[in-house]
Amino acid sequence: MCPAFPDFRLGSVLATSFTGTLSERHGHPVERIPTPQRLVDWLAVYGLAVDSCTSAQLDLARELRESIHAAATAAALQEALPASAVRVINDRSVQGRAAAILTPEGERRWRFGSASAVEDALGVIAADAIGIIAGERDGRLALCASPTCRAAFFDTSRSRTRRWCDMNTCGNREKKARFNASHRKRPASPE
């Protein structure tokens, strides 16, 4: 992976981690898959290894990412899902031809069924998004409390009250900002 690009934000839920490849959507957006090779790199991290990616396939991936973000945001807010986002998610899901296989070590791997491995990988991501948006997994969709982020994330905490998409980035930054603001308001102590 090229050090000139921002690090990936890694999570345990494939679909919402994929939407995290564009962060700080309401501040200064950070594109984490700016090139086809970076998409190849990201897919490999999530066990969806492909040999190559074209610019057109990167465009498909970004369209899926934004559609998942729009639908997950609507679901988190308990609003109607955007029809265009649902269409893109469904199209990517049915066009993918991937199969889960079990390795001798007892791990799941993906086998892609067509020469368009990127489309197959996007199908796996779309299917994961369908599962979480449809409420088939134990957890809840939520939006990051950071006003510059507002990323959709899947909260699997015991209480389902998580506030940040990532405590190490958004949560830490927001808590630090509150701490600094509270210290600026305190009068200087006399010596």
Rank of each mutant, 00 (worst) to 15 (best):
M1S: 14
P3V: 00
A4V: 13
A4C: 10
P6W: 06
P6V: 07
P6E: 04
G11V: 04
G11S: 14
V13K: 12
L14M: 04
L14G: 01
T16S: 12
S17N: 04
S17H: 02
T19A: 03
T19V: 03
G20R: 11
T21E: 10
E24H: 03
R25H: 00
G27V: 04
P29A: 01
P29N: 00
V30P: 00
V30M: 00
I33C: 02
P34H: 00
T35K: 04
T35A: 03
T35M: 03
P36Q: 02
P36L: 00
Q37S: 11
L39H: 03
V40Y: 09
D41V: 03
D41W: 07
W42V: 02
L43C: 02
V45H: 13
Y46N: 14
L48V: 13
L48F: 11
V50K: 07
D51T: 13
C53P: 11
C53L: 06
T54P: 05
S55Y: 08
S55I: 12
S55V: 12
A56G: 06
Q57K: 01
Q57T: 01
L58N: 04
D59P: 07
L60Q: 13
L60G: 12
A61P: 06
A61E: 06
R62F: 09
L64Y: 13
L64Q: 08
S67A: 15
A70S: 15
A70N: 09
A72R: 03
A76W: 07
A76C: 11
S84N: 11
V86P: 10
S93V: 09
V94T: 14
V94R: 09
Q95Y: 09
G96I: 03
A98T: 03
A99M: 13
L102M: 15
E107Q: 15
E107N: 14
R108P: 05
W110I: 09
S114N: 08
A117F: 09
E119R: 15
V124R: 00
I125R: 12
A127P: 01
I130M: 12
I130N: 12
G131C: 09
I132Y: 14
E136Y: 08
R137D: 08
D138E: 12
R140Y: 07
A142T: 12
A145V: 02
A145G: 10
A145Q: 04
S146K: 01
P147H: 04
C149T: 00
A151Q: 15
A152E: 11
F154A: 00
D155I: 08
D155L: 08
S157D: 02
R160P: 05
W164N: 02
D166I: 01
M167W: 13
M167F: 08
N168G: 15
T169A: 10
N172G: 06
R173K: 10
K176A: 15
A177R: 13
F179C: 01
N180I: 15
H183W: 14
R184H: 06
R184C: 04
K185S: 15
P187T: 10
A188C: 07
A188H: 09
P190E: 11
